[in-house]
Design a protein around this nucleic acid. Structure first.
Length: 320
RNA sequence: GCCGCGGUAGCUCAGUGGUAGAGCAAUGGUCUGAAAAACCAUGUGUCGUUAGUUCGAUCCUAACCCGCGGCA
């Protein structure tokens, strides 16, 4: 056990999918006596492992409670959620705060690892105080879109909240619905909740942040190799979930790649097609993640150009 | 060898006698309780080759090359 009073300043590892952030976070946790908090919207789910690149661990009874241990390192917010359950940024933030508090009380270092930029953003910069999502209102608004089109609802937003309407494209139905939902719940325009300076930087005085950047072609190769390697396991996981009675449209099975596994299982796509489709989707996802991370101009980056540059143990030692 | 069909963007294909377009991919971007979500913007071209007809050909004609199918 680490000595009391030791530095427990959090470490936050970010990067696109297949960048190796989980492996790096694990090495860092081993080096500094830390525990991992997964900032990942998919690795939370039970039974989805291959397709989410969930670090393989074992649920273990410890003096600190029942924990998911990977190589002996506790990984929080991993493998905890029923595939039918939904998860969101606020749920992540409150669970992560609880985990971070407990880790710090044990005099250990919280090591965040995550590719879900919005979760990291929400945790470190906070979310403005708005009401939580309301499934009934969302469903009603979605029905209106299905009947009248999204432009019809966007015109309504234009009337009640021109500032928000200017920022939310009519086709972005998720954000459009959210804006109208907040208005219905509070009677106030969503833009009145927004504060400025929300997206520019991360609070580097509170934690050590690090972004992993790969040469795009090398990351692309890593994605291709990983997808070929995990595809059969994804198919098995998907079959097992269906056999257990989980619906094909449950939140977990909407994770990237699983719809393609479902297509393969139902014979509407062959193996090569399915893998190719997953690789394409994963690359596009990695690109979106990198675009998101570009905003954090005050965060240090580690740039990896060649496959040989990848040595998590060594990188962990150099940054600690 | 003969007959038929085809050759246009990275891929699948549409199209017009006045030098071209859609989807996907690609590239850049957006992001406040679904974020592995949902969106926005932007190209890309010797229109198989050569010759002919024409003021003008990617489009019509011919030959040739390549691919696919059928017949031998």
């Amino acid at each position: 056990m680490p000595a009391p009073g030791k530095n427990t300043r959090p470490i936050v590892i970010m990067g696109p999918t297949a960048s190796g952030k989980s492996a790096l976070a694990l090495e860092i946790a081993k080096e500094c006596g830390g525990e991992i908090i997964s900032a990942d919207s998919r690795q939370v789910y039970k039974f989805l492992s291959a397709g989410t690149a969930k670090p393989q661990g074992v649920w273990t009874d410890t003096p600190d409670g029942l924990l998911y241990l990977v190589d002996g390192i506790p990984c929080h917010l991993t493998d905890i959620l029923d595939p039918r359950a939904s998860y969101d940024a606020v749920s992540f933030v409150s669970r992560a705060h609880k985990a971070a508090t407990e880790i710090t009380e044990r005099n250990r270092t919280p090591v965040f690892a995550g590719g879900t930029g919005m979760y990291i953003q929400s945790y470190w910069n906070g979310l403005d105080d708005m009401p939580e999502g309301n499934p009934a209102i969302r469903e009603k608004l979605q029905d209106e879109i299905n009947r009248n089109g999204h432009r019809y609802l966007h015109a309504r937003l234009e009337r009640i909240d021109p500032a928000a309407a200017a920022k939310i494209p009519p086709g972005n139905t998720h954000r459009l619905i959210r804006a109208l939902e907040v208005h219905e719940l509070t009677g106030k325009p969503i833009s009145s909740f927004w504060t400025s300076q929300y997206f520019a930087v991360l609070p580097t005085h509170e934690a050590d942040f690090l972004i992993i950047e790969w040469d795009k072609d090398v990351l692309s190769d890593r994605i291709r190799e990983r997808t070929a390697l995990i595809f059969d396991d994804m198919v098995e996981e998907t079959k097992a979930l269906l056999a257990e009675g989980y619906p094909a449209d449950c939140p977990a099975l909407k994770s990237l790649g699983y719809p393609q596994a479902l297509d393969f299982i139902s014979n509407s796509a062959d193996r090569a097609e399915s893998i190719h489709k997953i690789v394409t989707l994963t690359r596009a996802y990695a690109k979106r993640q990198m675009t998101w991370l570009k905003r954090y101009k005050n965060v240090p980056r580690i740039r990896l150009a060649k496959p040989e540059d990848w040595n998590p143990k060594r990188i962990a030692r150099t940054i600690l």
